[in-house]
């Protein structure tokens, strides 16, 4: 089974470099799916501060990624999640999945981002241009998006 690459970091990531690292030296990959989560400027947001639980974060993401690698025939998997202060337009999270065929890459990429939203211990605090701040609240639709992967059973 493919061993996923997991990183939790404050620094930005380089999408092209990560894609190249995942496919370098292999001839069995036929498709690579990527998801990049980006800080969006809702309600005149000036910055978003991501807090996480060091230790548990890495464990939780590793478990979700290993689940994806067990469920789909992946030839590569990378998950990078940032923390700290981000401004609108900044990338927050990267999910890369590679496989021989597109369906496994696309499905596992969607699975990973759905589960990251509900099982990785991150919390977002929004800061606004006119002052004030608020913690982002968890959304029921995120729970529903993650739950559909359980309901589907062995969708791979």
């Amino acid at each position: 089974m493919t061993q996923p690459t997991i990183r939790v970091q404050e620094a930005p990531f380089d999408l092209a470099a990560e894609c190249a690292a995942l496919t370098k030296g292999r001839s069995d990959t036929g498709g690579l799916a990527s998801f990049v989560g980006i800080c969006r400027a809702d309600d005149n947001l000036s910055a978003m501060v991501l807090e996480h639980y060091p230790g548990m974060t890495e464990r939780a993401i590793t478990r979700i990624a290993e689940e994806a690698c067990a469920r789909w025939p992946l030839t590569g998997c990378t998950v990078i999640h940032r923390y700290g202060r981000l401004t609108p337009g900044d990338p927050i999270v990267l999910v890369l999945t590679a496989s021989a065929h597109r369906a496994a890459a696309l499905e596992s990429c969607a699975f990973l981002i759905d589960w990251l939203k509900t099982r990785a211990p991150f919390w977002k605090r929004e800061e606004f241009a006119e002052g004030g701040e608020r913690w982002v609240e968890a959304k029921a639709e995120d729970d529903a998006a993650a739950a559909r992967w359980s309901a589907q059973g062995g969708a791979a």
Binding site: H52, L116, P121, F122, K124, V136, A138
Partner: peptide, 10 residues
């Protein structure tokens, strides 16, 4: 033991 609000990553 850790206590926190529902998570909002991703």
């Amino acid at each position: 033991v850790a206590f926190f609000p529902p998570v909002t990553g991703g």
